[in-house]
Simulated scan of single mutants.
Amino acid sequence: MNHLQPVNPGNTAQLAEHLRRRALSGNRLIVGLAGPPGAGKSTIAEGLRRHLGRECAIVPMDGFHLANAIIEGTELRERKGAIDTFDVGGYLSLLARLRLNEEDVIYAPTYRRGLEEPIAASIAVPRLTEIVITEGNYLLAGDGPWARVRSYLDEAWFVELPSETRISRLIQRHVDSGMEPAAAEAWAKGPDEANAKYVESTKASADLIITCP
C-alpha cells in the first residue's frame, strides 16, 4: 500500500483482503491502528475482524492503562490517558511475545469502559492466529521506549476524524461511562484534546491513513 494513502473506512473488506494476502507468507502479521481518542480505531479493528474471522485477534493498547489504584492521589489521575499513564514496558513485552509466537496461547489484557480499569488475561491469542491487530493512541510515538513499538508492527495505519465529530463522540462516550455531561465535555476538550494533538504529531510515521467522514 502507498505511504499515506487516504482510505475510506467503508473499505474494510478491501483492507482485510490486503491483510489476508500479506499473511499468506506463513508468518504472523501484526498491524497497528494508531490515532487520537475517539477517531474510530476500535470500530475499524472490529470491522476488519468481521471480515477476517478466526484468523484475526484484536489486542488493544488500552489494556495497559495504569490501574486507578496506582494513579489515584497523583497528578497522573488528572490526565489519565496521557502517554505516561500506560505501562509501556508491559505493552512492549506483549508485542515481543506476539511476534515470537512460541506459546500455545498468549493472554492479553483489555480495558473495560464504565469500570475504567484494565482487565488482565481477558483476550486469548492462540498460536495459529495469523493476524493480530493492536490499536491505541501512541503506537507511532517516538519518545523513549514508545519508539520501539513500531519495530514490532508489520504495518502501521493512522485513523483520523474531523475534530468536531471526534470530540462530540468522546463527550458521549464519557457520559455513557457515567460522567456528568459538563464533566464529560471538560474532559474531552481538556486532557483528551491535549493527547489528541500529540497523537496527530505522530501521523507521518504511518504507512496508511484511514480518513473517517
Rank of each mutant, 00 (worst) to 15 (best):
R49V: 12
F64G: 01
S42C: 00
I70A: 13
L48R: 09
A45N: 02
R49H: 08
G38F: 12
A69L: 08
G53D: 09
I58F: 03
E46V: 01
V59M: 00
I58C: 01
P60S: 00
K41W: 08
K41H: 08
I44Y: 06
G63P: 05
S42E: 02
L48E: 07
M61L: 15
E46S: 08
G40I: 04
I71E: 05
R54C: 04
H51I: 06
G63F: 03
K41P: 10
K41T: 10
A57K: 14
R54N: 10
A69E: 14
G38C: 09
E55P: 03
K41V: 09
V59W: 01
V59I: 02
V59A: 02
A39P: 08
E46A: 10
M61A: 10
C56T: 00
G40S: 02
I70Q: 15
E46Y: 04
P37H: 10
G53C: 12
A39V: 07
P60D: 01
E46N: 10
G47P: 06
P37Q: 14
I71G: 05
G38D: 08
G53S: 11
R50D: 07
R54Y: 05
K41Q: 09
I71M: 05
E55R: 15
G53F: 14
A69F: 06
T43E: 14
F64I: 02
P37A: 15
G53A: 13
I58A: 01
M61R: 06
A39S: 15
T43F: 12
P60Q: 02
G63E: 07
P37E: 11
H51K: 12
N68P: 09
P37F: 08
A39G: 08
P37L: 11
R50T: 09
A57I: 05
P60W: 01
R54E: 13
F64N: 03
R49M: 11
C56P: 04
H65F: 01
N68A: 14
A67P: 12
G47K: 04
R49G: 04
G47I: 08
I44F: 01
S42V: 02
A39H: 03
A57Q: 13
L66D: 07
S42P: 02
F64V: 00
G63S: 09
C56Q: 03
A45D: 00
D62H: 11
S42Q: 04
A45W: 01
P60M: 01
A57W: 07
L66I: 07
R49S: 10
N68Q: 14
F64P: 00
N68C: 07
P37T: 12
A57G: 06
K41C: 13
I70S: 09
G47H: 03
T43G: 05
P37N: 13
L48K: 11
A57H: 06
H65N: 02
I44P: 08
G47E: 07
R54S: 10
A69S: 15
K41S: 14
P37V: 14
G38Q: 10
L52H: 10
G53W: 13
T43N: 11
S42D: 01
A67S: 14
S42H: 02
G47R: 04
